[in-house]
């Protein structure tokens, strides 16, 4: 809405918006700040905001005591692996639905979406049982598969909406220009689809990273990712605020940065194209 407003109003908007923004962001800011305090400063009364002795010892302790790197590695493998596997399965499917649509395409898409609506708790025991039988409980492979399956509908949908934006005339032009199907895919379609595929990957890594039902219920010690690692702080250890903060900061930092890059794609991905 490009409307001319007085500078005064712009000042007021700026102050208000920054105030609200900082308020919403405050819990994250406070966590990051606390992670650099000593435990004593973390629970000091009244609370200290910036005037404390900055220290990195909490990060060292968290890593040393709980082997943070192992949880991080599990998170990376589960989020990255499930997304990659999902994209590999979804690209051909989305591709054919976007470019060779049939009467059933819409029904298939909606049905895929409906599987996403299945409440996880409703199938918790069967999955648990299957995992025990197949020896997948507390394994990264098992989680990669489950997280891939719960995100597959979103991946297919996002890719589908991106592919649909590639105009059919361009593909026809390539055909007229003498490109074979292989050349058409290699030189025309893929370069045009890469931005869409990239943002799909980005958003799904975020979703997989933060998934906290299956990761909590299907892992114990070996395959537990950061979600489960943090949940372990809900026991008495949680009273060590500085360490809790350091662990939390490390758990959310990578995804916070990825998330900021993907904010433009967020809306489309999470509303299945219903809002653009």
């Amino acid at each position: 809405m490009a409307r001319s407003v007085t500078t005064n109003r712009k000042h007021a908007n700026t102050v208000l918006a920054w105030g609200v923004g900082l308020l919403i962001f405050f819990p994250i800011l406070w966590t990051i700040l606390t992670s650099f305090k000593t435990e004593a400063q973390a629970i000091a009364s009244p609370p200290v905001f910036l005037n404390f002795d900055w220290t990195l010892e909490n990060y060292a302790i968290v890593q040393e005591r709980s082997d943070y790197m192992r949880f991080l590695w599990n998170s990376v493998i589960i989020a990255g692996g499930s997304t990659l596997l999902g994209v590999i399965i979804a690209v051909p499917a989305a591709w054919s639905m976007a470019f060779v649509p049939s009467k059933r395409t819409k029904d298939i898409l909606l049905w895929m979406l409906s599987t996403k609506m299945l409440p996880a708790v409703g199938v918790l025991y069967p999955i648990y049982l299957i995992f025990i039988r197949l020896g997948l409980l507390d394994s990264r492979v098992g989680l990669v598969i489950v997280i891939m399956l719960i995100n597959l509908p979103i991946i297919v949908w996002m890719l589908y909406t991106y592919f649909r934006e590639i105009p059919g005339e361009i593909l026809e032009a390539a055909r007229m220009d003498g490109a074979t199907l292989r050349e058409e895919i290699l030189y025309v379609l893929t370069p045009m689809a890469i931005p869409g595929i990239a943002s799909t990957i980005l958003l799904n890594i975020i979703l997989a990273w933060n998934e906290a039902f299956w990761t909590l219920n299907l892992t114990a010690a070996r395959a537990a990712p950061l979600t489960a690692f943090i949940a372990s702080y809900s026991s008495p250890e949680g009273l060590f605020y500085a360490k809790l903060s350091a662990a939390s900061t490390m758990a959310i930092a990578p995804i916070l940065i990825l998330g900021w890059f993907s904010q433009k794609q967020l809306v489309r991905g999470l509303t299945f194209g219903a809002v653009k």
């Binding site: 005339e169 361009i170 026809e172 032009a173 390539a174 055909r175 007229m176 003498g178 370069p191 045009m192």
Partner: peptide, 20 residues
């Protein structure tokens, strides 16, 4: 005969240029 082998060239309504 497939389109490419007909020796015809086409100019599309949307121009259909390759954006990349």
């Amino acid at each position: 005969v497939p389109p490419a082998k007909r020796g015809l060239a086409m100019v599309f309504q949307s121009y259909a240029l390759y954006p990349h």
